[in-house]
Design a protein around this nucleic acid. Structure first.
Lengths: 114, 114
DNA sequence: CTAATACTTGGCTATGTTGCCAAATAAGCA
DNA sequence: TGCTTATTTGGCAACATAGCCAAGTATTAG
């Protein structure tokens, strides 16, 4: 397979992988519009601060967030607000699935399943 | 934290996670517009057929693809073509990062870094 | 029925991920 | 200076993932 093509899929996968965790999705959601320091995010996530910090470094390494030190605190913000589009994409898939599910159930209720 | 909110992030993460692999991104790309059988995808991926099959089952369990048996072959297709939006999202992040990178390099060349 | 083809499943190993705790670092305050 | 607070890093255990091979299933062809 074409090396360049392969590299492109790998680059995309790295971005998507960085978002593929509920805690990191919550972080991205919290960061919409405003920047937040680690302890604020920790309060929402109810995880050890070291764990939150690691999630943030995953997002940072992927180029999704950036950090800025303010005194003792570190404020994180979205580097590319477009990541929130991922939510809509995921939501659409979930909706499609829910709709199909409902349809199947409807057919079953009408005696379609044997 | 709110249980419902948590569940929503988990549901989204499951979808995104299913896409977070170069092989599966390639599959989704191959499936744009047309359906493909497992051996066609295998030829592109250059992976063991059992591995391809497992990637497909990950996508299927996430509700991203659906399968239809035609004789001996199994044809897979996108259940929700909107997943290709993910590519654009990922691409935007990559672009943003590349642009920032270029900017930093520009500053360095002008003697900004010490 | 037998053989061949297409695919899936089970099993295994290697590798990656997530969480916590403890220790290290950094900045502001007394 | 030494103390406190905020954050990061290292280490480790538990668990998940990705790949291959071998074996199982299913459908068509002879």
């Amino acid at each position: 397979m074409d090396t360049e093509r392969k590299a492109r899929y790998e680059a995309r996968a790295r971005i998507i992988k960085a978002l593929a965790h509920p805690a990191r999705l919550l972080i991205v959601d919290e960061l919409r519009g405003k920047s937040r320091c680690v302890c604020e995010l920790q309060a929402e996530l109810e995880l050890d601060m070291s764990t939150v910090s690691k999630h943030l470094s995953v997002l940072k390494n992927a180029g999704i967030v950036q950090d800025a030190k303010k005194g003792v605190q570190v404020y994180y913000s979205l580097r590319c607000p477009c990541v929130t589009d991922f939510f809509q994409c995921a939501e659409k898939v979930l909706l499609t699935r829910a709709r199909d599910q409902a349809e199947v159930l409807g057919r079953t209720a009408r005696g379609g399943l044997r």
